[in-house]
């Protein structure tokens, strides 16, 4: 497993608030578009195909 699933963000509450606040004035459609952009930006930053595949698999779990 290359994907790091341990806590990495110092202030989880602060980050969560920033994320939610960033979409406060968006309608549903705008939120979905922004989420899609965010996924793509972060995926590119990670860049490692193995890690990305593991992340997709983890997110697909129901």
């Amino acid at each position: 497993m290359k994907l790091n699933v341990n806590p990495m963000i110092d202030d989880p509450d602060g980050f969560y608030k920033e994320l939610i606040d960033s979409q406060r004035n968006c309608n549903d459609e705008e939120q979905r578009l922004m989420n899609a952009k965010l996924i793509l930006i972060l995926a590119n930053h990670i860049g490692d195909r193995g890690v990305l595949s593991e992340a997709i698999a983890l997110a697909s779990l129901r």
């Binding site: 979905r32 952009k37 590119n44």
Partner: peptide, 20 residues
Amino acid sequence: NGSRHFRDAILELAKHAPFA
């Protein structure tokens, strides 16, 4: 809809971000 969102996101990002 999900795939349309990713498509539109890529097109919007392409204007500013070379990676897209």
